[in-house]
């Protein structure tokens, strides 16, 4: 009896271990060039072993295939994405606290890809130690994208956090500063106006009930 159980375990265990990997291959097969699949699969396996989120890697490969990128380019982009996720996790772990979630890692990686230099990102993570830093990093990147100086942008977002604004509300701080620019203020004047008003920054408009009713969930498999 015991021999039968061991025999069954020997057969089933490798199948179970491969099932996750099998599903990654299944998702890539037919869309991603065959020569790229093996390498992408090994990158995904390595990311799994490091407990990094793997879905962004699968998506990067699918994106490359959809954009008709060459197999080498796909592999390169997936490798670069893995490295960005790794850096994002390192940055988050430096802040201490609970192990970062896949969403946090992905969000921070996206903020870094927007061009935030690591020392600047590190400054934000340190300043907001008790807070998932993704929204703050994106708020700073939003300000930078509109020509605000890096340090001044970080100062404003840290000040907003100290004034009690948290999470996605930090994005509203950047939006308020951009609105001041659009009204004709200079960059320093826009920052000063928003800073004086903290923590009062306008909320973004909520989706109307009609929009909510119209909204549909995408179903890629259907």
């Amino acid at each position: 009896m015991r021999r039968v159980a061991l025999f069954l375990l020997a057969i089933v265990a490798p199948l179970g271990a491969q099932s996750g990997r099998g599903s990654v291959r299944a998702r890539l097969t037919g869309r991603v060039p065959e020569v790229a699949i093996a390498v992408v699969d090994s990158v995904v396996r390595a990311a799994e072993a490091e407990r990094l989120p793997t879905e962004p890697l699968v998506q990067k490969a699918l994106e490359g295939a959809a954009k008709h990128a060459a197999p080498g380019r796909i592999v390169q982009a997936v490798g670069a994405q893995a490295e960005q996720l790794r850096q994002a996790r390192t940055l988050l772990e430096r802040g201490g606290g609970n192990p970062p979630t896949a969403i946090e890692i992905t969000s921070v990686a996206a903020a870094m890809v927007r061009g935030l230099p690591p020392p600047l990102a590190g400054r934000i993570v340190t300043a907001l130690a008790d807070e998932p830093p993704g929204p703050a990093l994106h708020a700073v990147a939003d300000l930078e994208g509109h020509g605000f100086a890096e340090d001044a942008a970080v100062d404003l977002i840290v000040a907003a956090a100290r004034a009690g604004l948290r999470g996605l509300r930090l994005l509203d701080v950047a939006t308020a500063a951009v609105h001041e620019l659009q009204r004709g203020a200079t960059h320093p004047a826009a920052l000063a106006t928003v800073r004086r008003a903290l923590p009062d920054v306008p909320w973004p408009p909520k989706p109307s009930p009609a929009e909510v009713n119209r909204a549909r969930r995408p179903r890629p498999g259907v």
Partner: peptide, 30 residues
């Protein structure tokens, strides 16, 4: 024809020589 959203306001390099628009979705309860 692949077109990046000119109104997105946020962009990231796509790793294939172009840019993707970036959207940050807020939960309904904020």
């Amino acid at each position: 024809r692949w077109v990046v959203d000119p109104l997105a306001g946020r962009y990231v390099s796509d790793g294939f020589g172009r840019q993707n628009a970036l959207l940050i979705v807020r939960p309904v309860g904020r």
